[in-house]
Each structure stands twice: as structure tokens, then as C-alpha cells.
């Protein structure tokens, strides 16, 4: 069963320089209890996708089309106040940078307890008990002592555990983790990945793992959704995709890991397009080694190629057959 079904989601940013078409046509599903990878280069729209599902896209961004079905309910049809009750309670988000996503002027206990109080209307000490319990789940040492401490008193890894606890406070059904290890030391990265894997398994949560790192995808995810310039290039389970990838995924997989770039492990020749004035036809055509004339003229549709494998490519038949 699908807990999340995103259909033709379109989110644009109306900036002074022009309309940034961050998400142009995003469709994918997430099966309940699964870990799904959301991958793509920087600027492909991964974070905006998560923000759109929670309906917290910052100004001047706006969701201008599509449907987001969560457990069968259309989130985009909800009143803002009803939507607010979903955030943190049914759907949570872990941010890329634990340091900037914790408010520097408030004690940890205060920040986290507010969330419990907001949703469950309990007394502060009851909320704090829930906070301690969840901090333990996130394996933060000395949860009781941490309550009165401020974010700057913790290391990066500890802060990320606090952020994970914040997302888990109310046992959400769906958790987005937006590159939760990008800003951490390599040794800490492995610990956080293990923690998320264990939590997903133990709590039976659905996890959408946003990442640049194909290694993390291979290690954690059952399915993967590949984004490029606001479009879904393909989606499906990882065996199928690693075996018969879309031209963009193929490039992602082939791209050499670069030692001089710790943030972006992969790099594909060429640049991600300008989203104010994106390429005609298939958005990937300027960088695609298989591009032919039709790729420049016609936008390829997202097609079901069988076996829950979806591909956006004019040439999928020949390419899939011929390799």
C-alpha cells in the first residue's frame, strides 16, 4: 500500500530574476514501511519536494499544481490549520544542517517540548518526559541533562541526534531525511546512517532518504526516485534501476567520486540547467549522450515500463533492450 502518492507536483519560485521552475512535473509513490531514496544532483529539487509535501515551501515559492495523497487524503486540498496538525505528527522532516536547524537561543528541552505541547495539548513536564524518551531512542547520551542545554553546547553528531529525536517525537508515519549526514564528519556519518536504519526497522516507519550518495542508496533503500531539474527521470526498485538505468541515472552511477569534493561525491560533465529558462524537450538532453532530435523537441512522458519501473525517456525501449 502506498502511504504517499505524489502526482504531477509543480512548485515554482516567483523571484525577481524570473520564475524558478524548481519542480515541474514530479510523480512518485512511497510504499508504507519502505525506505525510498530521493536522489539527484544539487538543485534538482529534492529539498523542495520534501518542503512541498509538508507544504512549507518558503516565499517566494508556491505549489501551483498537482496532488499529494497521504494515506489517501489530498494534502493540497487541506486548510492550512489542518495541514499544520500533520506536520511533525504524521509527517516529519530532518534537515541537512543540524546546526542551522536548531534555534540557538532556546534550550533543547524547551524547543522539543513545544512540539509535543502544540500537538497533544499536554502539560510541560509530561511533554518533557516524552522528549527524554525520544532523545533516548535517538541514542543521545544523558538526555535528562541535555534538556537545559543550548544547541551550541553539542557536537554536530549530537545535534543531528537531537534533530532526529525532534522529528520522531510524535511517532510520525512518514519521515523525510534531507541529506542528514552531509554536514557531518565521515565517522559520525556512518553512525547516523546506522541509527536511521535501525529506527526505520524498529519503528516500522516509512523513510524517504534524500541524498547525493548512491552508496547510501544501495545500503539503505529498497526503491529510488531519481530527480533532475524538477522532473522525475525514473523510479523503481534499486536492483532494476542499477541494472537498467535511465541515461541520467547511468551518468550518476558512472560519475567518478571526487576526493576534492566532500559534499558532492559525484559529478557529471556539464551543468544543471537554469531553471528559469529550462531546456526544451527532455530537460536532460544538453548533457545526454543518447540525445537525438526528438529529445530537443518533445517532452518525454513518465512511462510505466513494467515491474513498478517508471522512466522518462523517448528512447527507453531501445536503450533498455539494447544493453
Amino acid at each position: 500500500m502506498n502511504i504517499l502518492d505524489v502526482q504531477n507536483l509543480k512548485t515554482h519560485f516567483f523571484t525577481e530574476a524570473g520564475v524558478v521552475k524548481a519542480l515541474e512535473d514530479i510523480s512518485f509513490t512511497v510504499e508504507k514501511g519502505c525506505t525510498v531514496g530521493l536522489v539527484g544532483e544539487s538543485g534538482s529539487g529534492k529539498s523542495v519536494t520534501a518542503q512541498s509535501v509538508l507544504r512549507i515551501v518558503p516565499k517566494p515559492g508556491k505549489i501551483i499544481g498537482g496532488k499529494i495523497l497521504f494515506d489517501g487524503e489530498d494534502l493540497l486540498a487541506k486548510k492550512e490549520d489542518d495541514m499544520r496538525k500533520f506536520r511533525g505528527k504524521k509527517i516529519s522532516l530532518i534537515f541537512q544542517d543540524p546546526t542551522s536547524s536548531l534555534n540557538p537561543l532556546f534550550a533543547i528541552g524547551d524547543q522539543l517540548a513545544d512540539i509535543v505541547i502544540q500537538h497533544d495539548r499536554v502539560k510541560k513536564d509530561q511533554a518533557l518526559e516524552q522528549v527524554i524518551k525520544t532523545l533516548k531512542v535517538a541514542r543521545l547520551p544523558d538526555p535528562e541533562q541535555s534538556l537545559g542545554q543550548y544547541p551550541h553546547q553539542f557536537s554536530g553528531g549530537m545535534k543531528q541526534r537531537i534533530c532526529i529525536a525532534r522529528a520522531l517525537l510524535l511517532n510520525p508515519q512518514l519521515l523525510f531525511a534531507d541529506e542528514p549526514t552531509t554536514n557531518l564528519d565521515v565517522t559520525i556519518q556512518a553512525q547516523i546512517i546506522t541509527l536511521l536504519k535501525d529506527l526505520q526497522r524498529d519503528l516500522g516507519m516509512t523513510l524517504v532518504m534524500i541524498t547525493h550518495d548512491m552508496g547510501i542508496v544501495a545500503e539503505m533503500c529498497k526503491c529510488v526516485v531519481v530527480l533532475y531539474a524538477g522532473h522525475v527521470m525514473e523510479s523503481g526498485d534499486i536492483e532494476t534501476i542499477f541494472e537498467k538505468p535511465h541515461p541520467y541515472t547511468e551518468a550518476l552511477l558512472k560519475a567518478v567520486p571526487r576526493l576534492d569534493q566532500t559534499r558532492k561525491l559525484t559529478s557529471i560533465p556539464g551543468n544543471i540547467p537554469n531553471l528559469i529558462d529550462p531546456p526544451s524537450g527532455c530537460v536532460f538532453h544538453p548533457r545526454c549522450q543518447y540525445a537525438i532530435n526528438i529529445c530537443m523537441e518533445k517532452v518525454p512522458p513518465l512511462e510505466d515500463v513494467g515491474g513498478s519501473h517508471f522512466i522518462t525517456c523517448h528512447r527507453w525501449r531501445e536503450l533498455q533492450g539494447g544493453r
Binding site: I56, P58, G88, L93, N103, Q111, I115, Q118, A167, L169
Partner: peptide, 23 residues
């Protein structure tokens, strides 16, 4: 209001009033 911690508070379902006047 552009900071991540404000978006994070919003993502946690904190009401706009509390975000504004407290955080």
C-alpha cells in the same frame, strides 16, 4: 524568518504565532 530553524519549527507543526513571537 529565512533561517532553517524557523522552517524546522514550521515543519514540526508549531503555530505561526508561536514561531513569530517566541522563536
Amino acid at each position: 524568518l529565512r533561517q532553517d530553524y524557523i522552517m524546522a519549527a514550521r515543519a514540526s507543526g508549531i503555530s505561526e504565532r508561536k514561531i513569530l513571537y517566541k522563536y
